[in-house]
Amino acid sequence: MSTGLLSGDARVEAAPRFPRKRKGISGRSIAILVFLSICAAFFCVPLYVIVTTSFKTMEQIREGAIFSLPSPITFEAWVNAWDHACSGIRCEGLKVGFWNSVAILFPSLMLSLTLSSITGYALALWKVRWAGTFLFILFICAFVPFQIIMIPLIILSSGLKVYGTIWGIAIIHAVLSMPFLTLVFRNYYKGIPQEIMSAAMMDSGSFWRVFGEIIVPMSGNIFIVVLILQVTSIWNDFLLGLTFGGLGTQPMSVVLANVVITTTGEAAYNENMAAALLTAIPPLVIYFILGKFFVQGITAGAIKG
């Protein structure tokens, strides 16, 4: 059966990507899938617990069966969390935090995307003699712990009368994310062919026109990636909101922490869980719809090194 042997060899040569027989499922595959499923269950447990708890009544929670399904299902906790939950002495619910977060998000996104895309473009595609040094400094700044610059920034923003305002938090977000986002944009723009840039120099030579007409239209994907990265990181931020938010301008995560941590008397666990879910829903929705870009964003930073 020399022909059989030959054709067998040829098959392996021609299709090295699929050496596995596709018929049936091997024992090892089953073992792997079972293990992965158990891990997946571990990852889903907290989500399951929060969701079920948020629909339970406090009576049912006191029974202690954390895995039981809610019966009766009640939306009271959600309504309370949104409308009445107490953060400190104010009992206006998470809605205040939600709208604050939204109000912080938009100006901050505008600022940080504009600032870091232009900076990245200038560093990647224009001749700037000190670009290398500056990139190195930005690289270091991207990893500096916030605490080392926190106090002077508080003093500075108080001096500029933006401390404790929505705009103050938005600006601080844009400022602190600038080094990292600039590096992301710069790495992307470095991939634009040199000849396109040369052609643009011959045709126009204007920094802004080339950016607006040639480069921005070519950077759709990276804008989405950075946008998602920024939306989730601004929405999920706690420390900046805590240190720069004033009374009434705190973002949602800070309000959530206050609701959960500073409760007096018996905690309303169902309300806490509903509050946590309310905070988690916006980024989760983005994640499940635009997961591909989200993954690109979080790995872009790590791999750029």
Partner: peptide
């Protein structure tokens, strides 16, 4: 499934 916790705030 393994990546969704990353989309959520550490506070949550």
């Amino acid at each position: 499934v393994f990546l969704y916790p990353l989309a959520v705030s550490l506070i949550v």
